[in-house]
Design a binder for these strands. Structure first.
Lengths: 265, 265
DNA sequence: AAGTGGTCTAGACCACGAT
DNA sequence: TCGTGGTCTAGACCACTTG
């Protein structure tokens, strides 16, 4: 049977299925340079024999690596190693806290404003709410090793916001707290552009109004497709860069340290 | 048998295989609102029967839609429509010209500088060249309906650059010209961040040195994994935004009109 | 308990690249 | 021509969600 982009559990989890085990194994071999950059992988049939699974399972594993941009694939020739870079997990992308830790910085956060009120039309549209529904709006300053890095404005539907409202103002990771209460994020849509700091941004980030900021707007949904949050995050210049790999039918986004050396693979 | 992220020909092409036909069919039904936003798709088995194919082929088709962020998928329940937005093609992302046309603007371009010289270390690293190899560097201003929008600095390995060097300075699309000569781009790695305009940027874009620009750096490779170009594109504020959908194991990047209304799905 | 999608098998044939 | 990955089939069993 066929499969597709294989949702598979978060790559952060321990591999549970055969194709995840194979993928993890091959990923390690690749990132450790076992095949070299530009090197060729064994044929699918060989891998199937080596791991004692069907060719289909091997293809499922390889599709994961292809989506991550680690290998090519084309008819007629063996797969080629495209890059040997570590791939960022979905969790690191969604959580400022996890991202900060993954790059060796100490994350901080403080809620500056929290209100509950009826959703306006844009919010109803984004969160798929009916007229009259309430939302929570959270304004929050995020720091890296004590220095202001980002201003976050997040809108939650009422049942999620109620959980957020109970957290301490300086709770480090709202995302992790939500996970602990069983709120899972399965999909996210991101928009990255450049925006001018308004008065609030300037005050909280310590810049001047009108200064340019890198903005990421994000809409996240749970496994059932129900909106969980709608956020507008504004980063000081030099704080982050966003990277994406894509091919004819794939791609993924990663958040990286600001103005990093040119991507190396 | 299993399959994966299904490289399938460019979605721009006419569907050639069964799963592409099914995917195109379902995509149209979804974007036309046939299932509604948040609606549920028929079961895989039902679709298999309706199209007269195996369940595996249906799953392959659905994996395409899942990668595009159009539908969810989880065990136990039918797939749910996540969004009904048009998905941008790989070609529109890679080619400024095609993108501009897709949003109804008239694209323009003019080569301002073209040099051939030995690659420096960074260029050798990016383009996977050996010491002593030559590269072409192209500096180019891009316009939307006559107004400057972006400055493009692209480095090509010698065999590709030689083709570019033969084009007229105001050739509209280098990407399309390369395609006509059989140069195909199969994968690309993007990095998006914020950068200050240098003297060249300011002169060509008509802004002041030090002004903030949205930068996209890109490394593209052919189907065999060989680097084709390494580019540094700098957009005037408000010109573009980049969007990405991702989930546990997928994602894709799209270029949009600058500071658009909040993403609608 | 029934319905549904996720994983896996064991084949088949085809399209393409390299030799 | 031969090896390789791409497409497709027809099953099987399992994990999960929902009533």
């Amino acid at each position: 049977m066929v499969d597709g982009a294989t949702q598979g559990g978060a790559p952060a989890d321990r591999p549970r299925t055969m194709y995840q085990k194979v993928a993890a194994d091959l990923r390690q071999a690749i990132t450790e340079g076992g095949y070299g950059s530009g090197g060729r992988l064994p044929a699918e049939g060989d891998l199937a024999q080596r791991y004692g699974v069907s060719r289909g399972t091997i293809r499922q594993a390889l599709s994961v690596l292809r989506t991550d941009g680690l290998v090519t694939s084309r008819r007629g020739t063996r797969r080629v190693v495209l890059g040997t870079e570590r791939v960022q997990s979905f969790g690191e992308l969604l959580s400022f806290t996890r991202w900060a830790r993954s790059i060796g910085e100490k994350p901080g956060g403080r809620v500056v404003g929290l209100t509950r009120r009826p959703a306006d039309e844009t919010e109803r549209d984004q969160l798929r709410l009916v007229a009259g529904a309430f939302v929570y709006r959270v304004l929050r300053i995020r720091t890296l090793s004590g220095r202001p890095a980002m201003v976050e404005r997040t809108v939650y539907p009422e049942h999620i916001g109620a959980l957020i409202a109970r957290l301490k103002p300086d709770a480090v990771s709202h995302t992790v707290r939500l996970e602990e209460q069983g709120v899972m994020i399965a999909d996210a849509q991101h928009t990255v552009d450049l925006v001018r700091a308004d008065a609030d941004d300037a005050r909280l980030l310590g810049c001047r109004p009108g200064d340019a900021l890198l903005r990421e707007r994000r809409r996240s949904t749970d496994p059932a497709g129900a909106p969980i949050e709608w956020s507008d995050d504004r980063y000081l210049p030099g704080t982050v860069a966003f990277t994406v790999h894509n091919s004819a039918a794939s791609g993924s986004l990663a958040r990286r340290r600001g103005t990093p050396p040119p991507p190396n693979n």
